[in-house]
Computed example of a mutant assay.
Amino acid sequence: MAAPIVVYPPAPGGGRKVTAHGETLGVAYGLVDVIEFLRRAGLDIATLDLYDEDLIDWRGGSPEVWGPRAGG
């Protein structure tokens, strides 16, 4: 079974699209954004494991990969 949440590879300008069950939640520029999107989608962020591969499919890099940042 595929993970219900997908965090796509970083875009050339930075940020990663986040979807849940195929519905776009937004573009995240860091883990705080991902957590907020998932909170708004109704997940319990107190027990959330961002490394749970059954929950989140991190495509194009781990939770530490976000692409280019302004100024460097």
Rank of each mutant, 00 (worst) to 15 (best):
A3T: 06
I5H: 04
I5T: 09
V6I: 14
V6D: 01
V7R: 01
Y8A: 07
Y8D: 02
P9Q: 07
A11I: 10
A11P: 03
P12K: 06
P12D: 07
G14H: 04
G14N: 05
G15P: 03
G15D: 01
K17P: 00
V18A: 04
T19M: 05
T19C: 08
A20N: 14
H21S: 11
G22P: 02
E23P: 01
V27M: 06
V27C: 07
A28K: 02
Y29A: 06
Y29D: 03
Y29G: 13
G30E: 06
G30Q: 11
G30V: 08
G30W: 05
G30C: 09
L31M: 15
D33R: 11
V34H: 01
L38C: 07
L38T: 01
L38S: 03
R39W: 09
R39Y: 08
R39N: 06
R40L: 12
R40Q: 12
R40F: 11
R40Y: 07
L43G: 00
I45G: 03
I45D: 03
A46I: 05
L48T: 02
D49M: 12
L50R: 04
L50K: 01
E53G: 12
E53S: 15
E53A: 15
E53T: 15
D54P: 00
D57P: 10
W58V: 06
G60P: 01
G60C: 11
G60W: 02
S62C: 14
P63T: 12
P63L: 11
P63H: 13
E64R: 09
E64K: 11
V65P: 01
W66N: 03
G67V: 05
G67D: 04
P68C: 14
A70V: 13
A70M: 11
G71Y: 07
G71T: 12
G71H: 07
G71I: 05
G71A: 10
